[in-house]
């Protein structure tokens, strides 16, 4: 996993609420057996029409907007547990997603892939959308070490929450699996000591 410390970038606005994982990556594109290449189909049905021509009114097809930060409406990533959604967003080149809240499974999947979900208040989110609308070159900074999100245009600085363990993983590029493997003795001890009443062998 690529370490994440601090990022300053312009942002791509997606002011839509309840963006579900079927929009982020539709099911028919989940047939790959590796993690690569999902970025091509990110927001496929919003991005391309039936003839696979880019839809001009969709933000990812609008050259005005670019950057490594995606800003989206509340409840981003609801729906399925498909990690392909996080892979697609990261593969497209985003490193952080800003929203007023994230669906739980998506949030976990993003963190496991070095994609930082930044939760800000609805007011801060509105300000970000307004800032980008007036100036698409506006820059924003995500500082993971200090847990701050800064709207460089307005100077608004806001804190965001992330659990300490996950923060360390992201900063150092560690995976959960490395940590869990380091707990093998404890896991074996747990199994040994356990009376399994439900008899699931």
């Amino acid at each position: 996993m690529t370490p994440f410390k601090k990022l300053t970038s312009t942002a791509v606005p997606l002011p839509i609420e309840d963006v579900d994982t079927d929009q982020i990556i539709p099911a028919r594109f989940l047939k790959a057996t590796t993690r690569e290449g999902f970025g091509e189909n990110l927001f496929r049905d919003w991005r391309y029409d039936k003839l696979n021509h880019p839809k001009e009114d969709f933000v990812l097809n609008n050259p005005t907007y670019s950057g490594e930060i995606l800003v989206a409406g509340a409840n981003f990533g609801c729906g399925s547990s498909r990690e392909h959604a996080a892979w697609a967003i990261a593969d497209h080149g985003f490193r952080a997603v800003v929203s007023s809240y994230f669906a739980d499974i998506f949030r976990g999947n993003a963190l496991n892939n070095g994609l930082l979900p930044v939760t800000v208040s609805p007011e801060v989110l509105d300000e970000v959308f307004r800032t980008i609308e007036t100036d698409h070159t506006a820059r924003f900074t995500v500082n993971l070490e200090q847990q701050t999100f800064t709207n460089e245009q307005t100077g608004t600085v806001t804190g965001f929450a992330i659990d300490e363990y996950k923060k360390t993983c992201l900063i150092n590029g560690y995976d959960d699996i490395d940590f869990l493997l380091s707990q093998k003795d404890k896991i074996a001890a747990f199994e040994g000591a356990r009376v399994d009443h439900s008899l699931s062998n």
Partner: peptide
Amino acid sequence: GIGTSQVEQVMATQCVL
């Protein structure tokens, strides 16, 4: 439900974090 990274974790350790 869990994501694929966690599927791998459970396969490797029988645990999730």
